[in-house]
Computed example of a mutant assay.
Amino acid sequence: MKAVIIRGYGSTDVLQYEDWMQPQIKPDQILVKVHASSVNPADWKIRKGMLSVLTGRNFPLILGFDVAGEVVSVGSQVTRFKAGDAIYGSTSFPGGAYAEFAAIPENLAAPKPANLSYEEAATVPLAALTALQALRDLGNIQAGQTVLINGAAGGVGIFAVQIAKALETEVTGVCSTKNLDFVKSLGADSVVDYTQQDFTTESTKYDIIFDTVAKRAFSTCREVLKPNGIYVTTLPTPEVLIQGLLTMFLPGQKAKLVVERPNSQDLIYLKDLIEAGKIRAVIDRTFSLQELAAAHAYSESERAVGKIAIAIN
């Protein structure tokens, strides 16, 4: 099969498109012919060595977490899938999706949403699961609450806005001037242009602030959090780790860090929302597998609106 391999950490130059051996599946895995994947910041952070404390130096590596494709064969313990099924899901850490075939644990996959293309479906898993788990599991989101999404036009932000609206909350999206109408089209009740306004100095207070882009610290958001409000971020900074521990044991406002946990149950939950028309995928650009270096560079530029898809087969 063709795959993109890295043999060391570094710039986009370490991404090498070449022939590689097809993966052998374990009893609890499915072999998937990968039709599409996507780029998440975690992918290029691993490539650059920013997460080497977790990934070590176990090369060569195939990166990529998001997969949409067709089941080719199943392991002896697999009961929910058969050859020919269209699925979407996640690879195990630290990746394996940037290839023509991938071995996926059964419990990290679900049937592909019927109303999405493979490219669209491949943009969903990591970003939408992060948004869902941040809001539902950490934020304890409830209908009628006020929710602010910082980075509302980004990969996680687009899903956070839509999930928060699907769960019947009042949503404020923070984005740049050029994306105000786009974020409104996702369902946001109001929008804040961060180039013109600082939401942390406004009078509105929120039940949940989800900083999808890790740009605003808990300490700067406290004034606009309600007394029992919850702040969630995607980046494990020293401040959020310390504040998370402190607020865990104290009444009042909480600071929390979301670490996405891929699982088939949540993928099925998202599939139902997507098929009901409550969530849509948004693709900024689609690159081929051979163009993965350019896709990584575009993701690192932080200019993408929505997700970056990778077309493979």
Rank of each mutant, 00 (worst) to 15 (best):
A294F: 02
F81W: 03
T204F: 02
Y269H: 14
L245Q: 12
E120Y: 09
A293V: 01
S90G: 02
T12P: 07
S76W: 02
A99W: 02
L270P: 07
M1F: 11
E168F: 04
Q24D: 05
I242H: 09
L167Q: 11
L270E: 09
Y269T: 14
G8D: 06
G155L: 07
G64I: 01
N58E: 05
N313F: 05
A36Y: 12
Y231H: 10
F159M: 09
D28T: 13
L245C: 01
G89M: 05
V71F: 11
K184P: 03
G139T: 11
G89C: 07
A304P: 05
T234G: 04
A311V: 06
A102H: 13
F159C: 04
R261H: 12
A134V: 11
F81C: 04
G157E: 11
S90K: 15
G8M: 02
A281T: 09
I208E: 04
Q197C: 02
V156G: 10
G56P: 10
V53T: 08
K82F: 01
Q29G: 03
A102E: 03
F182T: 12
E100C: 05
Y206P: 02
K48H: 09
F159I: 01
N228I: 00
E106V: 01
E302F: 03
F199I: 14
L116P: 11
T12C: 03
K165L: 01
L108F: 13
I25Q: 08
E291D: 13
A309C: 07
V4R: 13
A293G: 13
N263E: 07
K271P: 00
Y88V: 03
H35I: 00
A297S: 12
K184T: 09
V147N: 12
N107C: 00
R222C: 00
K2D: 03
V240F: 08
V232E: 06
Y194E: 04
G95W: 02
L245S: 11
L51Q: 11
E120L: 03
R280Y: 03
I5M: 06
F81M: 01
L61I: 13
F218I: 00
G69M: 02
N115K: 14
L61Q: 15
I158T: 15
G244P: 11
S92R: 15
I6L: 10
Y298V: 01
A143F: 09
A128Q: 08
A110R: 10
D13A: 12
L292A: 08
Q290D: 08
Y17T: 10
A83E: 09
D284G: 00
E70R: 12
A97H: 08
I308H: 07
I46E: 06
P113F: 04
K256D: 01
W44Y: 15
G139I: 06
L51F: 15
K112A: 00
T79A: 07
L292D: 06
S288A: 13
